[in-house]
Write a protein that binds this DNA or RNA. Structure first.
Lengths: 169, 169
DNA sequence: ACTGAAAGAAGCTAACT
DNA sequence: AGTTAGCTTCTTTCAGT
């Protein structure tokens, strides 16, 4: 008797099959995370209790990992966004990098941080007031670090998002 | 009598001052977009009606632009993310690029799209199943386009998000 | 697995401080 | 601007199909 409980490895990272209804719910909640369950049900032409059970199941199965307000940084006086590619010096101790990354990702200007395998070691997506603050951010937080070899800054003219990806665990 | 109505230019793009309470609300809703108003009020130690009015005002002033479910793409069998930098051939007609971008941003693999001023003309953040799909994405949607000069693909090892930025208008 | 109904919780509005 | 109070609407559960 191979019972599910006990046979499974630490449990995580398993992929999940979604049917068409699940996919439609995910799509709607990606766009309108605060839609009422009643409206969601109406949009899908199902009973509110069904919509509710499905949505809960998506959260329980880890497909939906959270809900977030999206913020207009331009309205907050941070009308300039930039993407900064960073290359690290070879031979830097791994935990120095981890500490550094942890600090960078706490900075209020930072929106996203990508750790890469490629020409750049990571990229930082920031929102600031103007180009002088971009420069200031790079100088104060990146290029002065001993293990940062180089940075490459690009201004962001347009930004489009097709959903919100969960951060990696 | 300078009445507000009629005197204002097309109205948009104005920045907004937030007080400390506003900022705390934005911070909480960025992390927990579906927190109940009662819990939000309790977290801030204010009356629910105050929290409610403040939140509404943030949405009305355009500071909060929407709410979104975040999706774990790994659970959906798209366990690999990549960032692809694209450079365009000089002399491409502007509306060709606009059409191209519009198409790219509809592709199901695409999470984000950054239009840049810098070495790359834009960057595409994608989620796919494996490295062969990365290659497939680049070949089928990018490098075959006549006005794409080159692409540079980086695998994403780690991804952190400190909030969700609204798309540009 | 989906539905319908009933109870409990939360959102929303308005009148007052 | 914030609060208290009351009405309305939604979420949530559960028994039934």
């Amino acid at each position: 008797m191979t019972d599910a409980k006990g046979d499974l490895p630490p449990k995580n990272l398993q992929t999940v099959e979604l049917d068409e209804l699940d996919r439609r719910i995910v799509r709607i909640l990606s766009r309108e995370g605060r839609i009422t369950n009643a409206d969601l049900a109406a949009a899908l032409d199902i009973a509110p209790s069904t919509a509710h059970a499905r949505t809960r199941s998506l959260v329980e199965r880890g497909v939906i990992r959270g809900f977030h307000a999206s913020v207009d940084h331009q309205r907050l006086g941070r009308g300039l966004q930039a993407m900064i590619g960073v290359t690290l010096r070879g031979g830097t101790r791994h935990d120095s990098i981890v500490t550094f990354i942890d600090e960078v990702k706490q900075l209020p200007q930072v929106l996203q941080l990508f750790f890469l395998g490629g020409p750049d070691d990571f990229m930082v997506h920031i929102a600031v007031a103007d180009s002088s603050e971009v420069r200031q951010f790079v100088v104060e937080n990146l290029s002065t670090e001993p293990f940062v070899a180089s940075t490459r800054t690009s201004i962001i003219f347009e930004y489009h998002r097709r959903g919100v990806a969960a951060a990696f665990r």
